[in-house]
Simulated scan of single mutants.
Amino acid sequence: MIDRVVTLTVSSRDASRTRFISAAKGEKQGDYVVFEEAADLARLLTENRVRILESMAGRGALSIGQIARMVRRGTHVVQDDIQALVDAGVMDQNDNGVEVACGAIRVDFFIHSKSPANVD
């Protein structure tokens, strides 16, 4: 059973503000990690980081060494990837180790033009 889903999304400040106001009124919004640009989200979710997240799903807190062995990579590069995921709010790190603080992660974003195209 998936107890909690965190959505990684790209959202404008206006959309985030609207969600915040709705939450302040008591309307459930779910759990979000919001990025201002699709490129920021894409930079975070490298192939190696996705492998780390998939490997850790449902396992609770693990040490960096355990994670490195699971994904068959060196501890220093895994530490760098873990730190990026912790900094983004996708993972939690404490005295017990590192863990994905949800049952599933949903990635949700649109890629669209920011300005009208000039076609001659």
Rank of each mutant, 00 (worst) to 15 (best):
G26F: 01
I105T: 05
L8I: 03
N96T: 02
V5W: 02
F20P: 00
I52T: 14
R49E: 10
D40G: 13
Q93N: 09
K25F: 07
D40Q: 15
E99N: 04
D31I: 07
T46H: 01
A39G: 05
R13L: 12
R43P: 01
I82Y: 04
S55L: 03
R51I: 02
A84K: 15
E99F: 10
D14T: 11
V90L: 04
T9P: 00
V71T: 13
V34C: 04
I111E: 08
F110R: 11
M70F: 13
D80E: 14
A57E: 13
D108W: 05
D81F: 06
R13C: 02
Q79T: 15
A23M: 03
Q79P: 00
R4A: 02
A61V: 01
D87G: 06
F20A: 07
E54G: 04
Q66H: 06
S113R: 14
Y32H: 14
L53M: 14
D80R: 15
A61S: 14
S22R: 15
I105R: 01
S63V: 07
M56V: 10
G60I: 02
D120E: 10
G58R: 10
G30T: 09
I21H: 04
F110C: 05
D108K: 09
I105Y: 11
I67C: 04
R72T: 06
V98W: 08
D31V: 13
V5I: 15
V77L: 08
E47G: 06
L85E: 03
G60Q: 06
V86W: 05
T9Q: 10
V6R: 12
